[in-house]
Amino acid sequence: MEHTIDRRDFLKLAGLGGVVFASGLAGWASAGTPEKDFYFVQLSDAHWGFEGSPNPDARGTLPKAVAAVNKLEPPPDFIVFTGDLTHTTDDPVERRKRLGEFKGIIDGLKVKDLHFMPGEHDASLDHGAAFQEFFGDTHYSFDHKGVHFIVLDNVSDPAGRIGDAQLAWLASDLGKTAANLPVVVFTHRPLFDLYPQWDWATRDGAAAVELLMPRANVTVFYGHIHQENHHMTGHIAHHAARSLIYPLPAPGSQPKRAPLPWDAAHPYRGLGYREVAAQQAGQAFQLQEFPVQGGSS
């Protein structure tokens, strides 16, 4: 970000609160520092089309998040959605209807530099066909102010694999970038085995991590588990985002992977989005988490 954000003014505007978590990724201030300070916003797991318990405001949380992000000043450089834009359905007509409704809502974002990837709810039943009709490729890369961003698809394969072809593409993509360039990876599932019993893993994620390991500055942002989680594989930091629909329990903390109940005393608890800042003078990305709040959307 090229201007300093006045947090007090922002908090007054959006009525939000949060905590800062620094990834601990060493060596950010090196020859591969970003060209300018900037920040982006990550939203994940909107599950548009989901209805019923445990979220009585299932059609309200995404519009509320859009309204809150629109109040950010200065605005983020871009916004990324890390999968499960919609809730799964066996009906291909309904799937496209939900994708279209989601697109209509996020078209209200003032920031127009948007990046998307599917979650298994969007893509596993048709290998990403409907998603691509609305949002384009399921894996790709782009550069922004001295940082190389990579979007990986580990959901279009219903078995939860990246696949040999995409891994070859990843190796080729990395081979075309300067070795000292900071790399940020966006994906839906975790690339490491967080809790495979609950499908919180990528079957060939270790192969992607192996390709990334030679890079000194790598950070991974993902969704899928509907909660914050921070993990290191060697020097690579992995950060999970909250959901916009319902929170899930900590890995293995209960017998089944069931959504946590709605807390009427603290509505929207566990739901939210995050802001990620890349600063030239810093040693790491800075993450700030913001909860979804009630009120008009």
Results as ranks from 00 to 15, higher is better:
D157C: 05
A165C: 08
D157F: 03
D199Y: 10
D199W: 14
D193R: 06
S172A: 13
A207D: 09
Q197I: 06
Q197A: 13
L211Q: 14
P158G: 13
K176W: 02
L181N: 02
A179N: 13
I162T: 12
A171M: 07
Q166L: 13
F186V: 02
G163F: 05
V209M: 11
W169I: 03
R215M: 04
D193L: 01
A178P: 00
I225Q: 07
R203F: 05
V155G: 06
L167R: 08
A206P: 12
K176A: 12
V184M: 00
A178I: 01
K176F: 04
W200Q: 08
T202N: 14
T202H: 11
Y195A: 04
G205I: 08
H226C: 12
S172K: 15
L170A: 10
N154Q: 09
D204Y: 12
D153A: 15
F221M: 03
P190F: 05
S156N: 11
F192L: 13
F221L: 07
P158T: 11
G223W: 06
W169P: 01
V209R: 13
P158N: 13
A201N: 07
H224D: 14
A206K: 09
A208V: 05
D164R: 10
S172I: 04
P214T: 02
D153L: 03
A178D: 01
G205Q: 11
V184D: 00
A216I: 01
F192V: 04
L152V: 08
I162Q: 05
A165E: 10
G205W: 08
P182M: 00
L174F: 11
A216G: 03
F186H: 05
A208Q: 06
Q227D: 09
V184N: 00
Y222M: 13
L181F: 00
V209L: 15
T202C: 11
A201Y: 08
A216D: 05
R189P: 02
T187Y: 03
V185W: 01
V209C: 08
A206M: 08
G223S: 14
W169K: 05
W169L: 03
V185P: 01
L174G: 05
A207P: 01
L170P: 02
Q197P: 12
V218N: 02
A206I: 11
I225R: 08
V155K: 15
V185C: 03
D173Y: 06
V155F: 11
N217V: 00
W198D: 04
Y195C: 05
E210N: 14
A165I: 15
S172D: 13
R161N: 09
A179E: 13
W169R: 11
T177E: 14
S156T: 13
H226K: 09
Y195D: 15
Q197T: 15
S156L: 08
V209K: 07
L194T: 09
G205M: 05
P158F: 10
R161L: 07
Y222V: 02
L167K: 09
N154T: 13
S172G: 15
V184I: 14
P190D: 14
T219D: 00
A179S: 10
H224G: 12
L181G: 00
